[in-house]
Design a protein around this nucleic acid. Structure first.
Lengths: 159, 159
DNA sequence: CACAATAAGTTGCTAAATAATACCTACATA
DNA sequence: TATGTAGGTATTATTTAGCAACTTATTGTG
């Protein structure tokens, strides 16, 4: 994939893309979030080529995004389960899906994701300030170590 | 890329990936968010092959993610600017970056993204309920049209 | 004006990733 | 034992990525 220059400005995006930048990654992940666990389930749901699927699942396991275990009651069956690290990709996936809904397909797209407690739709994913304001590009700033305020700073400033 | 089966469960993720699933897409986007506007800037910052960069920029323009305009003061120069649609990818990109920070590189990774108003770090990107609770996989539910509550329903239920 | 330099690509070729399909192996079930 | 199932590999073809050299339009310089 090539090397990035400018080490200073390097963030963890390239590292994240190492795992998730592959073509089918997000779709397999979505299927896993929807409760699929087995090779044949992924294969028939997504229509992905078997060798590619095998390769992706192996990579997810390598990266600790999924866990692979063969079931004792039927030792042919292998279960692929999302790990904590895998589950942590939910906000990213929902953000990408919401963007697609708003800007690509245009439609609200059912089934829709709702809070299971009250069945009300979730909020749009957003970048939020510490006190919950929605921030856009203009409200953001890249800060170096010395330049970051924390709760203590704010308390001190108020004295 | 192959066709998905199960039309019912199809969401806009595939549509989003049509634009963003390409190998360099997020890195070019990040560079654009960091203020880069020109072909040679992207090329030397990222070290991407020129033909691939040309191809990706053209695709971004096709998809309405960037706008291409030649500058009147130097007609050799072409400016690539993020559109509103492009800017709307910020939460997705930040979510992916934060995931990489937490689970891949491990480090907090400077420069860090802060609110330009008070220089305090932004919140982790999360899936939030209508009233701001953080939701994880277990708290979520896929709902079909009839199954979605809205503010009106809640008000009625309270009467 | 001639000439070098710059910006934004394009072209031709090689290497790597992806895809389609057939095959394989360990179980399980009748 | 025969038959089917789950989870893969192996083989081959196609697509995409990557490198380096070239092109075209413009601009700045002596």
């Amino acid at each position: 994939m090539g090397k990035l220059r400018e080490p200073l400005n390097e963030c963890s995006l390239p590292a994240a893309l190492e795992a998730m930048g592959e073509r089918w990654a997000f779709l397999i992940l979505r299927a896993a979030f929807n409760g699929l666990h087995h090779f044949e389930e992924f294969q028939s749901e997504l229509g992905i080529a078997r060798n590619i699927l095998a390769n992706r699942l192996a990579r997810f396991v390598e990266h600790g995004i999924m866990e692979r275990q063969s079931l004792p009651e039927d030792r042919r069956k292998i279960q692929y389960c999302l790990t904590e690290k895998g589950h942590a990709l939910l906000p990213t996936m929902v953000a990408l899906r919401q963007w697609g809904e708003r800007w690509e397909t245009g439609v609200p797209a059912f089934p829709i994701l709702v809070d299971s407690r009250d069945h009300r739709p979730i909020q749009p994913i957003a970048v939020l300030s510490h006190d919950g304001r929605v921030l856009t590009k203009g409200d953001l700033h890249w800060a170096l170590p010395g330049d970051v305020a924390d709760a203590t700073d704010i308390a001190n400033a108020a004295e």
